[in-house]
Structures are given as C-alpha cells and as structure tokens.
C-alpha cells in the first residue's frame, strides 16, 4: 500500500512538474524603448505592447509606470485633465504617483527602473521596481 501511494505521489508530482513551463516564451522583462528624443514632454507616452507609461519631465527627467492594475490585471488609462489613472474593470483610481485613491486595488501601481544604455537608448527593466520618486536624468 505504501509503495502504491509513493508511486502515485511521485507520478502526480512528475505530472505537475511537467505542466510547469521550464521556459516562458513571453515578451522579455527588460527591453529598449528607443531614444530619449522619441518621447515628448507633457502627457505620458503609452507603450501598448509593453503596458507601460513613459513620463518625461523637463526638470525631473524620465520615469516609467506600469499600466497593469494591481487588482485584477486590467490595463489602466491615464486621464490628462485629472492627471490620474483609471482602471476600467472595477473602477480603481490611482494618483499621479500611482497611489490608490479609490476602488478595490490592493496596492499602488508599480514603477520600473529606467536606464540609459551605452548606445544612447532607454532601457526598462520590469523585474526591478523602484519608488515613484525615481527619475532618470538625461
């Protein structure tokens, strides 16, 4: 009986491990988004494929906010008039710094590290979150 249970247990473990992908073929978490000159001052630029907002400010430089709502993963929209983010799924509202102002979102929007590469391009790393005050001066 013990042998049978062990065999079943090991087999089930192997099946579960088989189902966990060893390689994720999703988009890379770290990627270049272009030259600094590509991004205008003022309202943030939304990069749809990467689901990020790129902010550029004359005095404070570059910052990158996640466009993924921390509640259930919907893509938030930025409203220029109020300068806040709105989630279409359950109405969460985030302040310009990403803090939750309203709704069921459990935590603020993520901000990602943005750096300048040697070839002069901007690189965003979604694996590295930074505080909302983080800025890259170029």
């Amino acid at each position: 009986m013990a042998a049978l249970c062990s065999a079943v247990g090991v087999s089930l473990g192997a099946v579960v491990r088989f189902l966990v992908p060893s390689v994720f073929y999703g988009p890379p978490q770290s990627f270049k988004i272009g030259n600094p000159g590509d991004f205008p001052y003022g309202p943030p630029t939304f990069l749809a494929d990467e689901k990020i907002f790129v902010f550029r400010d004359r005095e404070r430089g570059f910052a990158v906010a996640s466009a993924v709502c921390t509640h259930l993963g919907c893509t938030v929209a930025y409203f220029q008039n109020d300068r806040d983010f709105h989630c279409p799924c359950h109405g969460s509202v985030f302040s310009p710094t990403g803090a939750v102002l309203h709704g069921p979102a459990p935590r603020p929007l993520n901000w990602f590290e943005i750096t300048l590469t040697r070839d002069g391009q901007l690189r965003v790393d979604k694996d590295k979150t930074v505080p909302p005050t983080y800025r890259l001066m170029v």
Partner: peptide, 10 residues
C-alpha cells in the same frame, strides 16, 4: 484580443 486595450467595463 488586444492585450493593450481593456474594454470598459471588462
């Protein structure tokens, strides 16, 4: 399907 655009409401 467009992962970038969430219908409102989803």
């Amino acid at each position: 399907a467009n992962p970038a655009v969430t219908p409102n409401p989803a």
